[in-house]
Amino acid sequence: MIFLSIAGHVLLVSGGFILFTSGLGILRMPDVWNRLHAGTKATTLGSILFLAGIGCLEPTWIPKLFLIVLFIILTNPVSGHALARAVHMRPEEKPDNLLEDDLAESGFEGGEEQ
């Protein structure tokens, strides 16, 4: 029991720290795509660790927390992908610090949705 409690506290602190870094990344990263890196990756692992920590301390909630984690893993990349696409579709907002841009060279403009 004491082991579960210690594991829960460690998971809570590491998850909280990663969630904090995601907020920091959103503020500090220089352009919108890099912000999206912080916003999708760090929040996913942060949520997994934080909710796992809550699950260690309150074992009866594990099924619901598992559903939340599953949902976050499934939906987070999708919203990140949608936002990344939206940036590409707005040329006036596109960051200009790219060292390599195959997407612009390919002349892809999106067009009709499949």
Binding site: G23, V32, L83
Partner: peptide, 11 residues
């Protein structure tokens, strides 16, 4: 831009 705000909202 609007996209920056949307990314921040997501997080």
């Amino acid at each position: 831009h609007g996209t920056d705000r949307a990314v921040a909202l997501d997080t």
